[in-house]
């Protein structure tokens, strides 16, 4: 039984890699600066569409963290995102107009770029509204973490996708280019996350937070997954399976301790709920390119038009990673 399952997973991984290989044709290189990547560099991979307004802060945030090269796939932006990225000295950019959905929500493209360029590197795969927070990130660059993970023979870092939201209706405080999104979207849910374990692929399945509370209260089984494994010491045989929620080989999903201890983990602060979501939800719904028939965006669109307030009396205001550590949303593990 065990062997059969293992073989099925192997097939599943191979299929993903083959898909990624075939989907490489959909990508056209716009700016190729990959020759500048040196061994040991920490890399970032992202797919985006019409996120121009977010890019300056995103790049600044991750440059300060120590990311040395950015790999972007632009999925048909028409707001100048591509031009902006192509001008950045540390960005390599690919373009495609093909279907995001048919590329497994962009993961086929990501898997291809990861396989091609990230072998032997620490690679961070995120969306442009996801901001990694790891223990000591205010005093140590990401290389301190990856060096330590290397020394500990750990290949991946687990995180919780932490939805951040403003107090009051979403549209009250407009986001301005270059600004810290968490200056306004500074609130989060601190303790309503539900975890179960996927016994096939060994990853955790985490749901909860404001999205489950506000948009999926009547059908929580459909609430979005919040478990993410964005930081991986990449090997060309690895593949992301479902967004960055899980990987194969499945040993990479064991980013948590099973004997009662805590492994070092982080949070991905999710700046989804800015005023920009109103336009975004309508547009994405029209394209129908998102996961599970875009049910998430359907739920948003309906509620977002009502301009909801995600804030509640028990919301917590973000201060720093130590606060998240104390609240039990992330852990230093044995890194001190």
């Amino acid at each position: 039984m065990g062997l059969v399952d293992a073989y099925k997973l192997r097939v599943r991984r191979r299929v993903r890699l083959i898909r990624a290989f075939r989907k490489r044709r959909e990508l056209t290189s716009v700016a190729d600066r990959t020759a500048e990547v040196r061994p040991g560099d920490t890399l970032l991979f992202a797919t985006l569409r019409n996120e121009r307004i977010r890019l300056p802060y995103f790049l600044a945030y991750y440059r300060a963290m120590g990311i040395q090269h950015f790999f972007f796939v632009d999925n048909g932006s028409d707001d100048g995102s591509a031009d902006y990225l192509a001008q950045q000295g540390d960005v390599s950019l690919w373009h495609t107009r093909k279907s995001y959905r048919k590329a497994r929500f962009g993961m086929d493209w990501m898997n291809w770029l990861l396989r091609r360029y990230a072998h032997g590197h620490w690679a961070l795969t995120v969306d442009v509204d996801e901001f990694l927070v790891f223990p000591f990130c205010d005093t140590r660059p990401i290389q301190a973490l990856t060096d330590w993970l290397d020394a500990s023979q750990v290949r991946a870092l687990g995180t919780l996708l932490l939805d951040m939201y403003p107090k009051g209706p979403l549209t009250r405080q407009p986001y301005r280019e270059g600004a810290d999104p968490f200056a306004t979207a500074s609130w989060f849910d601190s303790g309503n996350y539900m975890i179960s374990k996927n016994w096939d692929t060994w990853n955790l399945w985490i749901q909860g937070g404001p999205r489950a509370r506000v948009f999926f209260a009547d059908r929580p089984d459909q609430a979005p997954a919040l478990n993410k494994i964005p930081l991986v010491k990449w090997h060309r045989s690895y593949a992301y399976i479902s967004s960055t929620h899980m990987l194969l080989p499945r040993g990479l999903n064991l980013v948590y301790d099973m004997a009662g201890g805590e492994k070092t983990s982080g949070c991905l602060l999710h700046a989804k709920f800015l005023d920009t979501i109103t336009g975004k939800a309508a547009e994405e719904l029209k394209r129908g390119e998102h996961y599970a028939g875009s049910r998430e965006y359907k739920a948003y669109d309906k509620r977002v038009r009502e301009d909801p307030d995600l804030w509640c009396k028990w919301s917590e205001k973000y201060i720093n990673w130590r606060q998240l550590e104390i609240l039990g949303l992330m852990s230093t593990g044995n890194w001190a």
Binding site: G158, T159, L160, Y193, I195, K197, L204, I206, N227, V255, Y256, D257, M258, G260, G261, E262, K263, T264, S265, G328, L329, M330, S331, G333
Partner: peptide
């Protein structure tokens, strides 16, 4: 670990 805590690094 912290007893009674379930989170991305402890399950």
């Amino acid at each position: 670990g912290r007893a009674g805590l379930y989170m991305p690094g402890r399950f």
